[in-house]
Each structure stands twice: as structure tokens, then as C-alpha cells.
């Protein structure tokens, strides 16, 4: 019974993905129609400059926003876990968790209006583009990092930090040599999660981006409305391969012994 559910669920999740992978190697111009084996769609993909440009921009924005989200989320998680009960703590907690639960269409509209308002008041940001997408994705990612960091900090044995302090380490040294190494797994998980969210986001990027800064998901979404070519299938194979390689590396690094 449990097995049947698991098989059904995995089959459902994988069916369209496996079909994409299979038909990526089809000669036919129509997606999901078999026309003999061919790798022409991979060649077409490698020659599609607009797509490659969008992919490169997406990767850069994802890496930059995951990094900013890491810093902000670390600070947020630290305050949530270590500052006890301060004035406004319930509001602080609700705001820190809000990006996790807000519908993305609301977050997108809200951040766009923030940027427009800031521009009217201060002249900055002068134009919307990669920079505003970067900030929007960081605002989303920091909430995910904060939750992971907070949970990890709450589960640490306080004796470890106390021992270091008793032996004369300054608070900064305690953080750098004891706390930080202990929370590295959550930081890595948080960075990767923020990276993934940014790389897959259509809605926030559509709202806060400007002309000339088209991320990969936004480009694909616009192409999808015009009708997709089998290039999409080839791209899915490339993404899946990249994810499998990254996952394999993470698996080897984390494997105990």
C-alpha cells in the first residue's frame, strides 16, 4: 500500500521529465513526436544566443542573491535564536518568516512598488534590471536561510561555546572558531536553496526586472506562450544532468567515513 503510493507518486513526478529526456533526442520538429534519433536540438541549444545569455545572467543573479541571502539570513537566524525576548520580537519573527508564506505575485508587486517608490524619493535605483532582481531574490532567500540557521543554532550544545569563552576566546573568536564551523551545513543548505529559488523564479523577476535583463525562466515563459520547440527538452536534459552531478558531489562530500 505504502509502496504503491510511493511508486505512483514518483511515477507521476518523473513521467513528464522522462518523456522530455527521451524526446530531446528526437529528430522531429514537433515536441514529443518521435522522428528518429538525433542530437540536433542540443546543437540548436548551444547556438541559441538569447537563451545562453539569459542562462548566464540567471546563474550570476542566483549566485549573488544566494550569497546576500546567506549574510542576511545568518544575521536574522542569529537574532531569532540568540537574542531572547526583546521588544517587538513577535513582529520581528513574523516579518522574518513572511517571505516564506507570501504568495509570490504579492511579493513581486510589493517589491516593484518599493523600488518605484525609492526611485521617486531618492533617485535610486535609477533603472530596474539585474540589480533589482538580485535584491528581490535576496529578500526571498534570506527567509529560508534564517529558518535553517535558527533551527541549527537552537539545537547546538551551549557548553561548546561556553568552554571556548572560559578558555579566553573573545566573542568574535568563539563565533569564528566554534559556532560558525558547527552551522556550516545549514549555511550550505540555505545557500543552495536560495540559489535554486532564484534560478527557477519567473514571477518576482518579471515584476522587478526592466528591459535588457531577462532571466532564463522569464525567457522560457515568454517562449512557452509562443509555442515551444524540442530545444526545451534538450535544455531539460542539460539542467537535470547538472543537478545530478551537483547532487552526486554533495552526496560524496557528505558521506560519512
Amino acid at each position: 500500500m505504502k509502496r504503491a503510493f510511493l511508486a505512483l507518486g514518483l511515477g507521476f513526478l518523473w513521467a513528464p521529465v522522462l518523456l522530455m529526456a527521451a524526446y530531446a533526442f528526437s529528430e522531429s520538429r514537433v515536441p514529443f513526436q518521435w522522428g528518429g534519433f538525433s542530437t540536433r536540438w542540443f546543437t540548436a541549444l548551444a547556438a541559441n544566443e538569447r537563451l545562453l545569455e539569459a542562462a548566464w545572467l540567471s546563474l550570476r543573479i542566483a549566485a549573488a542573491s544566494a550569497s546576500l541571502a546567506l549574510l542576511l539570513g545568518l544575521a536574522l537566524g542569529w537574532v531569532l535564536a540568540r537574542h531572547g525576548h526583546f521588544a517587538g520580537r513577535p513582529i520581528f519573527g513574523a516579518l522574518a518568516g513572511a517571505p516564506l508564506v507570501l504568495p509570490e505575485v504579492v511579493t513581486g508587486l510589493a517589491l516593484l512598488l518599493l523600488f518605484v517608490g525609492l526611485q521617486a524619493l531618492t533617485g535610486w535605483p535609477a533603472q530596474r534590471g539585474a540589480m533589482t532582481v538580485w535584491l528581490a531574490h535576496s529578500a526571498l532567500g534570506m527567509a529560508y536561510v534564517a529558518v535553517l540557521v535558527q533551527a541549527r543554532l537552537a539545537s547546538l550544545d551551549p557548553a561548546l561555546e561556553e568552554v571556548a569563552a572560559d578558555l579566553g576566546a573573545s566573542p568574535l573568536a568563539v563565533f569564528g572558531t566554534v559556532t560558525l564551523p558547527l552551522i556550516v551545513p545549514s549555511l550550505a543548505a540555505g545557500w543552495l536553496l536560495a540559489f535554486t529559488l532564484s534560478l527557477d523564479d519567473v514571477v518576482l523577476a518579471s515584476f522587478v526586472s526592466g528591459p535588457g535583463a531577462t532571466t532564463l525562466p522569464v525567457y522560457l515563459f515568454s517562449q512557452l506562450r509562443l509555442g515551444m520547440t524540442p530545444e526545451a527538452n534538450a535544455l531539460a536534459v542539460v539542467m537535470l544532468g547538472g543537478a545530478a552531478v551537483l547532487g552526486g558531489i554533495a552526496w560524496v562530500i557528505r558521506r560519512p567515513g
Binding site: 514518483l10 518523473w14 513528464p16 518523456l19 519567473v202
Partner: peptide, 24 residues
């Protein structure tokens, strides 16, 4: 491994997965 199998299809990206459903 099973959790990885649940998560891996996600990495094709939400737009491409919806494109696949259109094709199907």
C-alpha cells in the same frame, strides 16, 4: 535516495515541466 528522486525532477525548472505537460 528516495528523497533525491522526489526532488530531482524539480531541477528541470518549473517552466519546462509545465511545457512538458502542454506537450503531453
Amino acid at each position: 535516495l528516495l528523497l533525491a528522486l522526489v526532488l530531482l525532477p524539480f531541477w528541470t525548472g518549473s517552466v519546462l515541466r509545465m511545457a512538458a505537460w502542454v506537450g503531453l
